[in-house]
Nucleic acid binder design. Sequence first.
DNA 1: ATGTCTTTGTGAACGCGTGCACAAAGATAG
DNA 2: CTATCTTTGTGCACGCGTTCACAAAGACAT
Lengths: 243, 243
Amino acid sequence: MATGRNHRPATRSRGIPEATVARLPLYLRALTALSERSVPTVSSEELAAAAGVNSAKLRKDFSYLGSYGTRGVGYDVEYLVYQISRELGLTQDWPVVIVGIGNLGAALANYGGFASRGFRVAALIDADPAMAGKPVAGMPVQHADELEKIISDNGVSIGVIATPAGAAQQVCERLVAAGVTSILNFAPTVLSVPDGVDVRKVDLSIELQILAFHEQRKAGEEADAEAASRKGPDGDMPAVMPA
Amino acid sequence: MATGRNHRPATRSRGIPEATVARLPLYLRALTALSERSVPTVSSEELAAAAGVNSAKLRKDFSYLGSYGTRGVGYDVEYLVYQISRELGLTQDWPVVIVGIGNLGAALANYGGFASRGFRVAALIDADPAMAGKPVAGMPVQHADELEKIISDNGVSIGVIATPAGAAQQVCERLVAAGVTSILNFAPTVLSVPDGVDVRKVDLSIELQILAFHEQRKAGEEADAEAASRKGPDGDMPAVMPA
DNA sequence: ATGTCTTTGTGAACGCGTGCACAAAGATAG
DNA sequence: CTATCTTTGTGCACGCGTTCACAAAGACAT
Ligand SMILES: NC(=O)c1ccc[n+]([C@@H]2O[C@H](COP(=O)([O-])OP(=O)(O)OC[C@H]3O[C@@H](n4cnc5c(N)ncnc54)[C@H](O)[C@@H]3O)[C@@H](O)[C@H]2O)c1
Ligand SMILES: NC(=O)c1ccc[n+]([C@@H]2O[C@H](COP(=O)([O-])OP(=O)(O)OC[C@H]3O[C@@H](n4cnc5c(N)ncnc54)[C@H](O)[C@@H]3O)[C@@H](O)[C@H]2O)c1
C-alpha cells in the first residue's frame, strides 16, 4: 500500500476480491471450531451463521476458491479447512518480528494466538538499551541495532510495529530496506511505503471515535424524538461560518 | 450490529456515509498536528497528503459535513478541528470500561491515547478474584460482580472486551443488559448483539492472515515469472475432491 | 430407474464508494 | 471595478461488493 493509497486498485490476485480475502480467516476460525467438534460437513447456512455473515455471500466467497461443496449436503469441514489454509498461505511458516516492546508490544509477544496459525515470533526488538537481553514471553529482547541482521538471518517478511508514533515511519523504512514486505502497524500514524509493500493498521483510537459517532447519533435520535414537536427539524447548528 | 450483520444497511446517519465517518478521525489527527504547529489554513491537497487519502475524496467527505472551506484558500484548521470533533461526538466526555485485565487489557489501561480525546477509563473489570483491588495504571481493578453497578453509576455506554474468547459473548450480554450500546471487541469471536448495539472488532490474527495471503501471492508471482516457461498456467491444484 | 428434496453455484440487479473533471466561488492584484 | 488565479464543491461515470432468486446438481428413498 503506497502513500495515500488505501484501497487496492487491481489486486484481485487470482480473481479473489479483497473483501473475500478479509472474510476467509473468519470462515477458517468457524471451521476450525467445527473440526475440533469432529463435525464432518456443514451447510452454507450453518457456517454463515457461525461466521456472522450472509449465506449467499459465503457461497459466493467460496465460489472464488473453486467448487468445493456438494449440493444437497454442504461442505466437507476438513477439506475446506485445508483449502482455505492453503489459499491464505497458512500451510507455511511465517516468521514475524515485533518492534517496540512496551506495554502493547509485550502483550503481543505474550499472545498465544500468534503461534496457533503459522505465525512464529522470530524476534522482539526495542531501541531502549535497558531492554536489551531482558526476557519477555520467554524470549530475550534484542536491540534495534540488530534489526537488519535479524530480518535477513530469519528470512522475515512480516513486521509488527508497536513503537510510539514518532518512531514508526523510521522503523518502517528500516524494516522495508531490510526486506520486510508486509507491515502491521499499531502506531497512530500514516505510514509511507514503496509499491509492493502491504500495510495494515490497527488503530484503537479510530475505532473508539467511530463508536462515539454512532453513540452520539443514537442519543441525538432519542432527544429528537422527544423534542420533535417543539422545534424545527434542525437541532442546533450555526449557519454562518466564523472568522 | 446484529448477529450476522456487518454492514449498516441504511445508517447514513445524517446522510454521512459510513466510509466517511471512518476517515474523519484520520483527518482530525492530521488537523490536530497542524493546529499544534499553529498552521492557520490548509488546502484539501495538503491535508489529503497528510491523512494519506485522495484529495477529491477528502473534499467530498467534508461536503457531507457542510461547506466549511473557502475557495482559493482552503480550510481553517481550528474551525475544522472543532467541526469534526463535534460531528464525531468528541466534545463530550465518554466514560469507558475495560473488561478483562490480562496482558492486553493492562496494556490498553496504560495507553495514553485514550484520554487524549474525550475518552476516559471509568473502570477496569476482571473476573479473577486475585486481581480485585490490584492497581493497574494507577487504578484499582474491580471484580466482575460489580459490572452492572459500575456501568449504571458512571453512565457508561462504551465497553471494551479484552477477555479470552470463551468469555466474550457472556461478558457482552452482561454489558448490553447493563446499558452499554457500543462495544469494542478484542476477543477472536463473533459477538451476537441486539439491534441498536454497535460492535467493532480488532483482530490481530485476521490482520496477519490477510498479510500472509498477499505475501504468498507476491512470492508466487516471483516463482511464476521464473517457472512460466516450464509448466502450464495452473501451478498445483488437485482437480478432484477427496472423500 | 425414477422422483423428491436439499443445497450449491451463479446470473443479474442494485447500491455504495471512488475518482475524474470542471464550473462556480472567492481571494488577490492591478 | 475588472481580470486573473487558486481552490473548493459536486455532477457523473465506473467498478466493486452485496443480495436476491433460481436452475442445476446430486443425495437419498422407493
Ligand atoms: N498500549 C496500547 O494499548 C495501545 C493501543 C493502541 C495503540 N497503541 C500504540 O502502540 C504504540 C506502542 O504503545 P505502548 O503503550 O506499548 O508504548 P510504550 O511507550 O509502552 O512502548 C513503546 C516502546 O517502543 C520502544 N521504541 C521507541 N522507539 C523505538 C525505535 N525507534 N525502535 C524500536 N523500539 C523503539 C520504546 O523503547 C518502548 O519500549 C504507540 O504508538 C501507541 O500509540 C498502544
Ligand atoms: N495479548 C494480545 O496481544 C492479544 C492480541 C489480540 C487479541 N487478543 C485477545 O484479547 C483477549 C485477551 O488477551 P490477553 O492476552 O490479555 O489474555 P489474558 O489471559 O492475559 O487476559 C484475560 C483476562 O480476562 C479475565 N477474564 C476471564 N474471564 C472473564 C470474565 N468473564 N469477566 C471478566 N474478566 C475475565 C482473566 O481473569 C484475565 O485477566 C483474548 O481474547 C485474546 O485472544 C490478545
